[in-house]
């Protein structure tokens, strides 16, 4: 699987990750899949995890239902979820894997000392492992520009 992410969506995720640091941020990803899975919109949601939000995130059921409704209203597809890993790499943890759903893209932003240093996207494979999604060819450049801005 390959994925494209529009710059505005990248910007929203980056700002959310920095604002939430040292806690984890989270949000939903919307877009379309005409030729290539393309994330056109990222919308932050409240991290509803009780207790230490520096190492965990959770999205409330009501926010999930709102996200499905928003996608239907706007004619978009709900394509996944993003969250940040403060001071940890952008690699899924066992906690991420345990609750992962098929089909969704899981974008993880690594934040080190308040600065986003990496962004990677993952999808659950048929045998229950996370596989990294290939980034559209220009996306690496966009991400580098964003991380350095």
């Amino acid at each position: 699987m390959a994925i494209a992410i529009e710059f505005e969506a990248l910007q929203v995720m980056k700002e959310d990750a920095i604002d939430a640091y040292p806690d984890e941020c989270c949000g939903f990803l919307y877009g379309d899949e005409k030729d290539l899975r393309t994330i056109t919109l990222a919308r932050p949601v409240h991290n509803a995890k009780e207790g230490d939000k520096r190492r965990r995130f959770e999205i409330a059921a009501s926010d999930y239902m709102d996200a499905e409704q928003f996608a239907a209203d706007e004619g978009l597809s709900l394509l996944g979820v993003y969250h940040s890993h403060p001071d940890h790499p952008a690699i899924p943890s066992i906690h991420d894997l345990r609750q992962a759903m098929p089909f969704f893209s899981y974008i993880i932003l690594s934040v080190k000392k308040g600065k986003v240093v990496d962004l990677r996207s993952w999808q659950l494979s048929g045998d229950g492992r996370f596989e990294e999604e290939a980034l559209e060819k220009d996306l690496n450049t966009k991400i580098l520009e964003l991380l350095n801005s």
């Binding site: 995890k49 059921a61 992962a100 899981y106």
Partner: peptide, 11 residues
């Protein structure tokens, strides 16, 4: 009946 995947995780 709404089926809702639990969306959670973390490092």
């Amino acid at each position: 009946i709404n089926l809702i995947p639990a969306i959670a995780g973390g490092q």
